[in-house]
Design a protein around this nucleic acid. Structure first.
Lengths: 204, 204
DNA sequence: ATATGATTTAACCACTTAGTTAAACCAAAC
DNA sequence: GTTTGGTTTAACTAAGTGGTTAAATCATAT
């Protein structure tokens, strides 16, 4: 009996994820996906008629991983500082589990940004409400004044970029000790939270 | 008379840069490069025998833009805070002039990290000396204590990521006002410097 | 046993790609 | 005016690519 995990469809999705992540939509070959899944090309097309459809399935699956958790934090009742801490924790936690996401998403959104449009609509994302929350906290004197776009960019950059640039970090910062890279990623949440709080919280 | 700028070779390099940056090594087509350069495919191969060689010329040219300036700042005699400010200024200045670099470099280094190895050797890059400088400043109590790798990651992330994720910023943060994106990039250096200094400088 | 659906095999198509080649063309230098 | 080197044209190759097809196989449920 086959569990859902090793059904052919699951094997294909897993293989396709690996190949698409490693090679991108353009670089991925259907033959390679079939090989990685341990099946043949005919059966691969039998399940997912075209490369486009298969890619779409993978891509939307990856995106769905990231959005919902962030949204619930944003819409909660916590203080702005607490929300920032929660978002950093959630981001780093997700990225440690799925470190390939940033590189993959960046590559594909640069190739075809139209996918982003659909997603923003689909998830009903509204950045203005986030900007408002941040500006209200500044009005109350909780955090230093700066454009919300800059604050968000700073936080997301520090969370995401070290994963997008993993090969570079691995080589420049940790070329002698690869296991130190894992330790580094595990420290990120704590470091970023402290860094941001020192940067923006006004001490009384 | 032809200046060096509109010689055929220069036209090819310019066209190839545009196409490689937009489509990546895999996605770029020799025919498209030839069209963009206003010549034909035969002549393109006449100048650069293979796609590989042409790509190599473009890639190393782009990298050479970034490294040297950073190196001279690192090796100067300024204080650590001053060096950080100079590096942020230099990075943002470069990226405003060549905003495509981060996306391109990330994509190609994820595809084939071996190029990085050659570059590090070629430029004689030694991160340990940077780590030492940072740790000595911490010993002197100038800045808060943290692992140098984290500090460097934070700074570089905030400089580079918003350019790598340009389509995302453009859509999420500035979808109603595209010209605001340019203004945003022009503010980055000031914002990042202030942010970092607030985060790490110990006030007496 | 038979019917069904998953899977394999292997050939095939239409198309695109990088790269090559041979011939002609053209402008400027000699 | 002939040579030369950059340039075009147009055809070609060799090797992939995504995708299709038809037939055979295999396991399982009925």
């Amino acid at each position: 009996m086959e569990t859902k995990k090793d059904s052919t469809e699951e094997k294909i999705l897993e293989a396709a994820k690996n190949v698409f992540v490693a090679k991108g939509m353009e670089g991925a070959r259907m033959q390679e996906i079939a090989d990685e899944a341990g099946i043949n090309k005919a059966l691969l097309h039998y399940y997912f008629r075209t490369k486009e459809r298969l890619f779409e399935a993978i891509f939307s699956g990856i995106i769905k991983l990231a959005f919902p958790k962030i949204m619930t934090i944003v819409q909660s009742e916590a203080s702005i500082v607490s929300k920032i801490e929660q978002i950093v924790d959630a981001y780093i936690d997700l990225l440690i589990k799925h470190p390939f996401i940033p590189g993959f998403v960046l590559k594909e959104l640069n190739r075809d940004p139209s996918g982003l449009f659909k997603l923003v609509v689909k998830f009903g994302l509204n950045p203005q409400s986030v900007f408002d929350q941040i500006e209200q906290a500044m009005d109350r004197g909780e955090i230093r004044r700066m454009k919300p776009q800059h604050l968000l960019s700073n936080i997301v950059s520090m969370c995401v970029f070290p994963f997008a640039a993993r090969p570079i970090l691995s080589f420049i910062l940790f070329k002698d000790d690869p296991s130190a890279l894992e330790a580094f990623y595990n420290e990120r949440a704590t470091v970023i939270k402290e860094f941001v709080i020192n940067a923006i919280v006004i001490k009384k």
